[in-house]
């Protein structure tokens, strides 16, 4: 077993008067599905945003493949997110005016891939998440579950190392949530991508390999303690 891919140590983050994180440790190994659990408002999303380099922590360190994420410039972090990370949020992440296919192809196109090539690959991914027939439709015309599958395809199309999923089933019913989780974890596992899965639902967390709990902005990771 290799060492961790992504490690955050002693992370602190304050928004105004709210201490969202006060000392969180977390590590993600390559290819594992890590559930981040905890009650609402405990700082799960903030932790995810820190790990993904979307926000910088006030203190603490984040290392991705041995590189210091905190010390990177904003542009470098953007580029890293584009090339190495994928994202699935609760809802509403698809660009409404683009078709589903174009939405999935978007990360590739932003990476400079030709339109034809990008859309062909996007089509494969749509098939893979079982919504191949939705390519020409706009996100406004598809159901919540279908939209989340498109989002999963978009997160994975660029062969990311880590997929960050923040309550990906939060707006879905059990059955749809179940399917999306299965598609997400299966696809990630077969692509050997790690998944950081923020959720407060045990049934969703049951798709993980391991969980950490965030409580009042603190989290301990046994892997790091040992």
């Amino acid at each position: 077993m290799t060492g961790p891919l992504l490690v955050g140590r002693d992370l602190h983050k304050t928004f105004g008067a709210t201490q969202a994180l006060r000392g969180a440790d977390v590590s993600v190994r390559a290819g594992e599905v890590l559930a981040v659990m905890g009650p609402s408002g405990s700082g799960k999303s903030t932790l995810l945003h820190c790990l993904a380099g979307i926000v910088t922590p006030d203190s603490g360190s984040i290392e991705y493949q041995g590189r210091d994420l905190v010390a990177m410039s904003d542009a470098e972090r953007s580029a890293l997110r584009r090339t190495d990370f994928g994202f699935v949020f609760q809802f509403g992440q698809l660009v409404p005016e683009l078709t589903c296919l174009e939405n999935v192809a978007l990360p590739l196109r932003l990476g400079g891939v030709k339109r034809k090539v990008a859309e062909a690959k996007a089509r494969q991914w749509l098939e893979r998440v079982e919504v191949g027939e939705l390519g020409a439709r706009r996100p406004g015309d598809v159901s919540g579950g279908q939209g989340q599958r498109v989002a999963v395809a978009r997160a994975l199309v660029g062969d990311p190392q880590v997929v960050f999923a923040d309550e990906p089933t939060g707006a879905l019913d059990s059955l749809n949530g179940e399917t999306v989780m299965q598609l997400l974890t299966e696809a990630a596992r077969s692509a050997n991508a790690a998944v950081v899965l923020v959720t407060h639902e045990a049934r969703v967390a049951a798709h993980s390999d391991r969980e950490i709990v965030v409580r009042d902005g603190t989290a301990t990771d046994r892997e790091l303690v040992s």
Partner: peptide, 19 residues
């Protein structure tokens, strides 16, 4: 304003603001 969420999601996914 309407596209708040998708825009934020895109930016989180590393889409540069200039685009």
């Amino acid at each position: 304003t309407e596209r708040r969420r998708p825009l934020a999601a895109l930016s989180a996914a590393g889409v540069p603001l200039p685009v």
